[in-house]
Amino acid sequence: MLEIEKLAVSYGKHIALHDVGLAVGKGETVVILGANGAGKSSLIKAICGMVPARGESAIRHLGKSLIGLPAHGILEAGIATVPEGRGIFGDLTVDENLQIGAYVRRARQGEAKRRALVFELFPRLAERRRQTASTMSGGEQQMLAIGRALMSDPTLLMLDEPSLGLAPVLVQELFAALSRIRETGVGLMIVEQNVRISLSIADRGYLMEAGRVVGQGSATELIEDPQVQRAFLGMAATAQ
């Protein structure tokens, strides 16, 4: 579904991504792992059109090239993003945020049905439809950001550090919801620090380091991988 080849991104002289290649299959859940500064966020930003990819890069979604498309064009192509920090509209109500989520043309049909799905996934949003978004808790705002992204009828949903700043119980709840979204057939690409829980709902994962993909494998392979265990799961190489 999503195919990326030779993706390169630089900010001035600083090279953030170099020769990155990865793919997300239809309905697949893929986790991107890596330390801070490995280029995970740049990857998301390049795909959703917030930073330009360099000339040799190729990004295709469902056969359509995304290179050079504006951010709204990428959304029309079926990729929705939940950015780090959520990016919801604080002064608007929950209902208005969801309404604006269905702003793109592809989302106009079946809007009511998707809104019902969002409220089914996140009952708390249904209780707070008229509340101003900025007055909600961090967890609720994250739910709203995901709900808003789902309103655009995506085939691929990208999430940048969705668990950041959430209490452990909310992280559990969040991933339970993501797992249900996955069951609806939407592809997921998740950038996460919380490796264990994200791999638990994932099919596959990629390891990034210094702007490159340095490893990949199925979720079960990765969770057993000594390199992953050492780097992210806080285990000594000799343990287990």
Partner: peptide, 23 residues
């Protein structure tokens, strides 16, 4: 109107507006 809400969304945050497909 959705269109009016979109304009207000741009007022709140132009960068997030791009993420929901508002030009």
């Amino acid at each position: 109107t959705r269109w009016g809400t979109a304009l207000r969304a741009v007022a709140v945050s132009p960068s997030s507006a791009a993420l929901v497909g508002i030009d």
